[in-house]
């Protein structure tokens, strides 16, 4: 072959992103904001904010939300939205709690409760995924429907009254127990989930296909990959994570907290998008989402401590979310 085509400046091939690039990544910026936020609350009331007990509380709040945010990261990586996060969590928690309260307090009961909770979430996710991928209904509409359906089923199953007789050993062991020193079990579980899913997104065929769907569904389809099956599987996996979060929430609060998850979706998506994930899909930084989760949680915690009405948290978080999406848009248009 005698033609040589240079489509770009000749390079050495491998140029790793420089240290400066890494320091200015959205994740690092977010970490800086988080540190600043903590510094402000510490300065305002160091006794109440910066003590071990309060940090343990923050970790507990972060744990359940992290599992949700990891699920939301998967869905957003495909450029889809899932509005049913909170109500799938509630329904899974209800099914799990009813199962466990029927079986009593035993290891088998706790295990079965976990399984039915996760499966309930996965079933909701798969149902949404099938309608989105097979019938082409936009995910934002399908999951808005699922939000209503899951919430409705949860209310039907409980007559609208929270299930309170969650096995004591679940609450004392998983919900309040520490894995080591001051680190709660819930935080360890959330960390394991984040690491496993984060690795999966980066290093496996399943993960890369998830991101490819969000980047260019058509390009992936043309490669011969079944984008329908992939989408359904990702929705089911995200649903399973919401189900797990429902179970963890039971352990934490010892009740189904049916009415207590209205802002979960807002918090989860704020975390994911602040974490540098594009609202237009094609990215999947679980690390970013995990750092992002601390923002709404620390804000709520800090506002209570410095005596600001905690309702302000939702206002601030909502505003941050919209601003972050705007910045993404600006960057994409570059």
């Amino acid at each position: 072959m005698n033609e040589t085509t240079t489509l770009a400046r000749p390079g050495t091939g491998r140029t790793r992103s420089s240290v400066k690039d890494r320091l200015w990544s959205p994740q690092m910026l977010l970490l800086g904001v988080l540190v600043l936020l903590c510094a402000v609350f510490t300065a305002a009331d160091s006794e109440s904010f910066a003590n071990a007990m309060n940090w343990r509380n923050i970790l507990l709040d972060v744990s359940v939300l992290t599992v949700l945010a990891v699920g939301a990261t998967l869905i957003l990586a495909m450029a889809d939205f899932d509005l049913s996060i909170g109500s799938v969590l509630v329904l899974s928690g209800v099914v799990s709690a009813l199962t466990m309260s029927a079986l009593g307090d035993s290891a088998g009961s706790l295990l079965l409760g976990l399984v039915v909770g996760v499966l309930t979430g996965a079933a909701c996710g798969a149902a949404s995924g099938i309608v989105v991928a097979r019938f082409g209904v936009p995910s934002i509409i399908v999951t808005l429907g699922m939000l209503g359906v899951a919430q409705g089923i949860a209310l039907l199953l409980t007559n609208g009254v929270d299930v309170r007789n969650v096995p004591r050993s679940l609450v004392m062991g998983l919900g309040n127990g520490n894995a080591f020193s001051n680190i709660p079990w819930l935080a360890v579980i959330a960390a394991v989930i984040a690491i496993v899913i984060g690795m999966m997104l980066r290093h496996t065929v399943f993960g890369r296909n998830t991101i490819a769907i969000g980047s260019s569904l058509e390009a992936l389809r043309r490669s011969g990959t079944s984008v329908v099956a992939q989408k359904i599987a990702v929705f089911a996996l995200a649903g399973a994570l919401y189900g797990l979060a429902g179970y963890l929430s039971l352990a934490r609060f010892s009740t189904t907290t049916i009415a207590g998850h209205g802002s979960d979706m807002l918090d989860a998506y704020t975390a994911v998008i602040l974490g540098g994930n594009s609202p237009f899909g094609g990215m999947g930084s679980v690390l970013g989402s995990v750092i992002g989760v601390f923002i709404p949680v620390v804000l709520r915690n800090g506002f209570v401590i410095v005596d600001v009405q905690p309702f302000w948290q939702q206002i601030v978080v909502g505003t941050i979310l919209v601003a972050a999406v705007y910045l993404h848009r600006a960057r994409r248009r570059g």
Binding site: T4, G11, G13
Partner: peptide, 11 residues
């Protein structure tokens, strides 16, 4: 390389 194409950073 085989097609004589240079991409600055293939990553």
């Amino acid at each position: 390389d085989a097609l004589g194409m240079t991409v600055q950073d293939i990553d």
